[in-house]
């Protein structure tokens, strides 16, 4: 079943497209919602459709989106990672502390390695102890956040090192663009290609769809899951390093609640909580929608209280539309 899902997605793009085909795309709902909101904000605010604003939105979206890609990739394999927000905060803190002691490239590599190890632990705890990943990563989230608070005492740490990694990750390049925008787009394309055009992508779909069938097909389900747990942590860590390079400070409170925003981005983008179905392009637009909404509401002068209301409504609508689209496909 999962193979056919993947095949449908590929086949439709190779043929002449009409509306009935386009609406079967898993990304259809989120792209439609994106276009509607984009139109509304552009009408309401004359400054919304400016390069300055679009690049500003991209900055926020890139940081959330990079995390959301990893989260969605794991969700498609049938598992959750709630620890991403703590990995994000921990990575920022490690990156700043290590950079201040050594240099930023070394700090960056060590930080990513530690994040990958956390992902590995998440995977092993989930698979070996047979604890649902929701619980295992919830535990890891609290463990990491608590440890970070205990070590820092809530105090911020300022970045006082070289500009090598900040320049590679997020310093302005010109016209408001930042390298993080490029990283986000490249990672979206890379993960999308892996998911739709490689054997590993098929394994991910199969693992999230039906484990037993996947095993019967010769897929090493556990290996796929552990790899995806590690990728999820790595992406969260990268996102944390990017944010800290932009803010120049790290604090234990960074990223609080971001795991839910990442999951919401993935779900709005068409990824199923049950696994076995999803698209990275959808996640791209899902993250864009989340970031755009906050900025758009501020720009049209709507009270900030509305932000969560809109996110909640869109999440429910998107999940409903996605489910209907999935049924149409079947």
């Amino acid at each position: 079943m999962e193979k056919s899902t993947n095949n449908i997605g590929v086949e439709t793009r190779g043929q002449f497209l009409n509306f009935s085909q386009i609406r079967r795309w898993p990304e259809f709902g989120v792209i439609l919602a994106f276009l509607i909101l984009f139109t509304i904000f552009s009408i309401f605010s004359s400054k919304f459709l400016t390069l300055r604003n679009i690049t500003g939105i991209l900055t926020i979206v890139s940081e959330l989106g990079i995390m959301a890609i990893g989260v969605a990739f794991l969700m498609i394999a049938g598992e959750f990672d709630l620890s991403v927000s703590s990995v994000y905060a921990l990575s920022g803190f490690l990156f700043v502390t290590l950079s201040n002691s050594f240099n930023s490239p070394v700090a960056f590599i060590i930080t990513l390695a530690i994040a990958a190890f956390i992902g590995f632990c998440n995977g092993m705890i989930t698979l070996r102890a047979h604890i649902p990943s929701f619980i295992a990563t919830l535990g890891m989230m609290l463990f990491l956040r608590g440890s970070l608070l205990a070590v820092t005492g809530g105090e911020s740490v300022s970045y006082k090192s070289d500009i090598i990694m900040p320049t590679i990750l997020t310093r302005f390049m010109g016209y408001g663009f930042r390298p993080s925008h490029i990283w986000f787009v490249l990672l979206t394309l890379l993960f999308s290609l892996v998911l739709t055009n490689t054997r590993y992508g098929n394994w991910v779909f199969a693992t999230g769809g039906n484990k037993e069938v996947a095993r019967a097909m010769g897929v090493n389900v556990n290996k796929v899951k552990v790899t995806n747990f590690m990728l999820s942590s790595l992406m969260a860590s990268l996102s944390g390093c990017i944010v800290i390079s932009r803010f120049n400070i790290a604090n234990a409170s960074f990223g609080t609640g971001m795991e839910l925003e990442a999951i919401a981005s993935a779900v709005i983008g068409g990824t199923f909580l049950t696994g076995g179905y999803g698209t990275i392009i959808g996640v791209f637009f899902g993250a864009f929608l989340m970031g755009m909404m906050r900025t758009g509401l501020v720009m049209i002068g709507a009270p900030a209280y509305w932000y969560q209301t809109f996110v909640g409504a869109i999440l429910i609508i998107a999940a409903t539309i996605n489910l209907k689209l999935r049924r149409l496909e079947m």
């Binding site: 400054k47 604003n53 803010f247 604090n251 906050r294 900025t295 501020v298």
Partner: peptide
């Protein structure tokens, strides 16, 4: 209070010129 979100609001306000 969430610093990243606060920063997003500042950026949005600035983008509104």
């Amino acid at each position: 209070f969430k610093l990243e979100e606060f920063m997003a609001y500042v950026e949005a306000a600035l983008a509104s010129e």
